[in-house]
Amino acid sequence: MAITKRTSDITVALYEWNKLTTRNIAEDEKEYFNSGIEFVWEGKTPEIDEEVLVYNPKTQNIYTDIWIDYGEGIGFEDTDEDTVFWMSYPKPPKEMEEE
């Protein structure tokens, strides 16, 4: 039973909320970024084109969104907040063989 609990704890840890915030680009960073970019995301980001759960602390809503590459930056397709939390979908359970 201890092994199952440990595996379960590891699985839960993989699906924790990740905090993302934005910050304005500093003057000395502007040469590295395209002139159209005014801010960057701070924190762990989803994979490009990954659909994830998003929690908006302002509205306290949970919904789905997709992390996309706009060509001149990256971000969520439908979320326009300075601070959000996101989580990958858990993997579906494996079918267990009946004994």
Rank of each mutant, 00 (worst) to 15 (best):
I3C: 07
I3F: 13
I3H: 11
T4A: 14
K5P: 01
K5L: 11
K5R: 12
R6G: 11
D9L: 14
D9S: 11
I10M: 13
T11G: 01
T11S: 12
V12C: 05
V12W: 10
A13N: 11
A13V: 01
L14K: 09
L14S: 06
L14C: 13
Y15I: 00
Y15F: 15
Y15L: 11
Y15P: 00
Y15G: 04
W17S: 08
N18G: 02
N18C: 14
L20E: 01
T21F: 00
T21G: 04
T21H: 02
T21I: 04
T21A: 04
R23H: 01
I25L: 15
A26D: 13
A26L: 13
E27Q: 13
D28L: 06
E29A: 07
E31R: 06
E31H: 10
Y32V: 02
Y32T: 02
Y32N: 08
N34P: 00
N34W: 14
G36E: 02
F39I: 00
F39M: 12
V40W: 03
W41D: 05
E42S: 00
G43P: 02
G43M: 04
T45L: 11
P46S: 02
E47I: 02
E47S: 08
D49K: 09
E51F: 01
E51Y: 05
E51A: 10
V52G: 03
L53S: 09
L53E: 14
V54L: 03
V54G: 03
Y55L: 08
Y55R: 02
P57Y: 06
P57E: 09
K58R: 09
T59C: 07
T59M: 07
N61Y: 10
I62V: 15
Y63D: 08
Y63W: 13
Y63S: 14
I66Y: 01
W67Y: 15
W67V: 00
W67K: 09
W67P: 00
D69F: 04
D69W: 06
D69N: 09
Y70L: 06
G71W: 10
E72A: 07
E72N: 12
E72D: 06
G73D: 00
F76S: 05
F76I: 10
F76D: 03
F76T: 04
E77P: 02
E77L: 15
D78A: 06
T79Y: 05
D80F: 15
E81D: 07
E81A: 12
E81W: 02
D82M: 07
D82F: 04
D82G: 12
T83M: 05
T83K: 07
F85D: 09
F85C: 04
F85M: 08
W86V: 03
M87C: 15
M87F: 03
M87W: 03
S88E: 14
S88C: 05
P90Q: 07
P93D: 05
K94A: 14
E95S: 04
E95Y: 04
E95W: 01
M96D: 13
E99M: 11
E99L: 10
